[in-house]
Design a binder for these strands. Structure first.
Lengths: 254, 254
DNA sequence: ACCGGCTGTTGATAAATATCAATCATTATG
DNA sequence: CATAATGATTGATATTTATCAACAGCCGGT
C-alpha cells in the first residue's frame, strides 16, 4: 500500500516536471513569483509574503490558444485557475446548446463551487483569446481561507458579488425578451469586459447567442434591428453604442 | 471557566425574558435557547456553546402568516433569517413577473449575498405556509465566520451547493422547454421540499409557474398533459408521481 | 488563383409560449 | 343563504423565438 502511494507521488512529480518543461518556453510568462505578480494586488491583497510563497510553490503556469479547453464540466480537478492574460469563457454545456455564465479576464480567478463540494467542475472553461493561466492547488487556497480571516472575508465578498451577478443574469435570461437580453450582453461587454465604448469583439456571434440564451440567428437579427434604429454600429467585430440611453431603456423594459 | 459559562447562560436567559414578552404569544415557539434548538445540529454544528450563546443573544423570533412578506428586495437589512417552522419562498421581483429562486423549509437559513456587499437584499422572501423565523444579527454571523474556520468552511460548502443548484436552475430555465421545466419543479418539490411522493402542494399554481419561469396557464396545461399521459395524478393540491422514469426522461430530454 | 471549410447573414416557415377572455370551483364575507 | 372575491381551468388567438435552408464572405492551404 505504502509502496503504491510512493509510486503515485513519483509519477505525479515527474508529470509535473514535464509540464514545467513546456511552460518555460512561454513568452507571455509574466512573473516568476507571485510576490512580483500584479495579480496579487487584486486577488491576494490580504495575503502576506509567506502566504504568497505557499501559492507560488504549488502553481503551474499554462498557455492556451484561442478555442482550447481549459477544463471541462464533470471532470475532477483540485485546482483553481487564475487568468493572467487573454480572455476566457466559462459555460455550462446543456442539451445541445451552451450557456455562457461569464467571461473571465485578467486578473480574475475561476473558482468553481465544486472545490468545496466534490472537487468536480460544474461548468467548462475555454480560451476565447489566447490565454495564460496559473493553476493553483485548491488545498492551498482552502488552507489560506481557514487561516486568514481577511482573505476569507474578501473571498466571501467576491462569491457574493458573483452570486448577485448570477441572479441578475437569471432574471435577464428568463424574464426579458430578446432585445432586452442582447442589450444586457452589450452592456456587459462594453462596461465589464472590454471597458470602452467603441470596442472590438473577440467573441463570435455564437458566443453572443450563448451569452444571451438564444439562437445565433436571433442574436444577429436583434443586432441588425439595433443597427437600423441607430442604437449602435456593428461592422464585423467593431461595435459602438451610439444611443446608450435608448439601449438602457430596452434593457429595462425587457 | 465553568463559572463564566454559567454566568453567560444566566445573562442570556434574562435578556431572553424581555424579548419573550412579545414572543410568548407565539404557539409555534420552539426553543428558548439556541443550545436547545434542533437548528443547531444542522446549521451550527461547528459552533461551541459560547458561540451559540452569541447568536442566541442577538436573536429575535418572529411569526409570519402565509402570504406575509418576510423581507423585500432592495431593503437594507443586517440580519440573516433562519426558518424554524413552515415554508417560505425567496423570489426575485422582475418585470411584472416573479421568479422563485428557492423554497426554504426548516431548518435552513436565508443568507442573502448582500450581507457581504452592501447589506441590502437582492431578493424578496415571503411565507408560503405560516412560518416561524429567527432573525440573527449578521455581524455576529460574520464574526463567527472569521473566528471559526470549521464554521466558515461549512458555510462555504453550503454557499457552493446553493451555487450549484442555481446553475442547474439556470440551465433548466433557459434551455429546457416547458415540460422539462415542470418536471424539474415536480422533482424539486417531491424530493427536496415535501420529501415524499404522494404529496400535498402548499404552493399555488402561480408559484408553480414562478418556479418554472412560465405563465400560470402554461404550467396548468403541462400538468394536464402529464395527467393525461398517466405520468402523475393531480387533484387540487394532492399530487402523486406515477411514472418516475418517464418524468425523469422528460426532465432530461428538455 | 482555386477550393473547401468556416463564420456570418438573410428569409421563410414552424414550433413554442404568452396573452386574453370566458368559465368553473372554492372559499370568504356580509 | 346569497354573493362577492379569489384561484383554477380551458379555449382561441397573437406573439415570440427557433429551426431550416440557402447564400455570402473570408481565410488558409494548395
Amino acid at each position: 500500500m505504502l509502496l503504491f502511494i510512493i509510486l503515485l507521488l513519483i509519477l505525479s512529480d515527474t508529470k509535473k516536471q514535464s509540464l514545467r518543461g513546456s511552460i518555460m518556453i512561454n513568452k507571455n510568462h509574466q512573473a516568476s513569483n507571485c510576490n512580483d505578480c500584479n495579480c496579487k494586488t487584486q486577488i491576494f491583497k490580504n495575503l502576506g509574503s509567506i502566504e504568497l510563497d505557499l501559492i507560488n510553490n504549488s502553481r503551474f503556469q499554462v498557455d492556451y490558444k484561442a478555442g482550447e479547453i481549459i477544463f471541462k464540466q464533470g471532470t475532477p480537478s483540485p485546482y483553481f485557475v487564475c487568468i493572467t492574460s487573454g480572455l476566457a469563457k466559462i459555460y455550462i454545456e446543456g442539451y445541445g446548446k451552451n450557456l455562457i455564465l461569464a467571461l473571465v479576464k485578467p486578473v480574475d480567478y475561476i473558482f468553481g463551487p465544486g472545490i468545496y463540494v466534490d472537487n468536480r467542475h460544474y461548468y467548462s472553461a475555454s480560451a476565447v483569446e489566447d490565454c495564460t493561466a496559473c493553476l493553483v492547488d485548491a488545498s492551498v487556497f482552502k488552507k489560506l481561507i481557514r487561516e486568514n480571516p481577511d482573505f476569507a472575508e474578501d473571498f466571501l465578498k467576491r462569491v457574493s458579488l458573483q452570486s448577485i451577478f448570477n441572479f441578475e443574469q437569471i432574471v435577464s435570461l428568463t424574464q426579458k425578451q430578446m432585445p432586452g437580453r442582447i442589450a444586457d450582453v452589450i452592456f456587459y461587454l462594453s462596461e465589464k469586459i472590454y471597458c470602452k465604448n467603441p470596442f472590438e469583439l473577440s467573441i463570435s456571434r455564437q458566443d453572443l447567442a450563448d451569452l444571451s440564451g438564444m439562437s445565433k440567428e436571433s442574436a444577429i437579427r436583434i443586432l441588425k434591428e439595433f443597427k437600423e434604429e441607430g442604437i449602435l454600429t456593428v461592422a464585423g467585430n467593431k461595435m459602438e453604442i451610439l444611443n446608450i440611453k435608448q439601449l438602457r431603456q430596452i434593457s429595462e423594459t425587457g
